[in-house]
Amino acid sequence: MVAPASSFRVFFRRALLTLACFVLIGSASRRAHAQSSIRVPGQRPGYSFELEPHVLFTPFEAPDNPSGDGYGLGVRGTLELLPEGFIPKLNDSVGLGFGLDWIHYDGLRGRGYCQGWAYSPATPGYPDGVPVCVETSAHSSSYVFVPVVMQWNFWLHRNWSVFGEPGLALSHRSGGDFGVSPVFAAGGRFHFNDSVALTLRLGYPSFSLGVSFLF
């Protein structure tokens, strides 16, 4: 059974994230219509590099074991590659993003690794008996992800931009193996001014909420 404190923590994190979603959506709906810039290429903050430290949350399992949700910290850097983007009539741009994310997974009680073995009767191939797990343990774990993504931005409004991010991430479990994970995310920024924005990213392997500094 999940402990009450753990349940509350999970609920609190999810509630906070959901609230952030609705605040973003609500604010966007009210303000964006009057000052749209999506059809005016180039009307956006000028920058060549975006630095975005963020906090992370993921409802997804770790790449290679049942883990429950996770949380962590990270940073993302994005170089602007195509200021004019792929669509000439739209205010879009394309960047190359790379980052470093650390995520800790608490593990799930009742799901994890075996920490005690016994043996059933011997069979061919198992002269000493077939190993049978008699005690399991939840297994917390920490991962480091190094994502590399294409960031496709759409500059909707003076205060708002959204982006999609497909890519790949090298992953490493502490004390364990390396692997490669897909990365895909959709995100949005609320621009306080031309240099600073609040950035929310939803996707796999994790969601993030951070502050972008545009240089």
């Binding site: 979603c21 609705f22 973003l24 966007a28 709906s29 219509h33 959709a186």
Partner: peptide, 12 residues
């Protein structure tokens, strides 16, 4: 914006 909002609501 409506499509974006719907997408985000679904994710939330």
């Amino acid at each position: 914006l409506a499509a974006l909002g719907f997408f985000l609501i679904c994710l939330c």
